[in-house]
């Protein structure tokens, strides 16, 4: 099954700033792989429950107790940019 990917849109969704040449290359490679992966569509699966997990476990809960937090300095030391006790980022254009 031929696959046609809007690669620029996908790259935007994935926050990857790729130039046109890169986009064209990835598009071609992804289409080849997806055509192979589309083999899954030839297998009849009507009424088959999808498996998102190999482990048949439920209710893995934690007690509602407070545990130790990280040291703020150790955490902020890894930040590419900080301002005092905060992480600093360039301006945000949109509300979420």
């Amino acid at each position: 099954m031929p696959v046609d990917i809007d690669i620029a849109k996908v790259a935007r969704l994935a926050r990857l700033a790729l130039n046109d040449e890169e986009l064209a290359g990835y598009r071609q490679q992804c289409e080849v792989i997806l055509e192979h992966a589309a083999l899954v569509q030839t297998l009849p699966t009507e009424g088959v429950t999808p498996t998102s997990h190999p482990l048949p476990r439920t209710n893995a809960f934690r007690e509602d107790v407070i545990t130790e937090c990280l040291d703020r300095e150790e955490v902020l030391a890894q930040a590419p940019e900080r301002d005092g006790d905060y992480f600093l980022v360039p301006r945000i254009l949109d509300e979420p």
Partner: peptide, 27 residues
């Protein structure tokens, strides 16, 4: 108003100094 956060043991309360109620999970 649980004691701890949804997926980790950090306090869920309001008003702590910035970035102190954090751990590997919620960060």
């Amino acid at each position: 108003t649980t004691n701890s956060k949804m997926f980790c043991g950090c306090p869920a309360d309001f008003g702590a100094p910035p970035n102190t109620n954090t751990c590997p999970v919620c960060l």
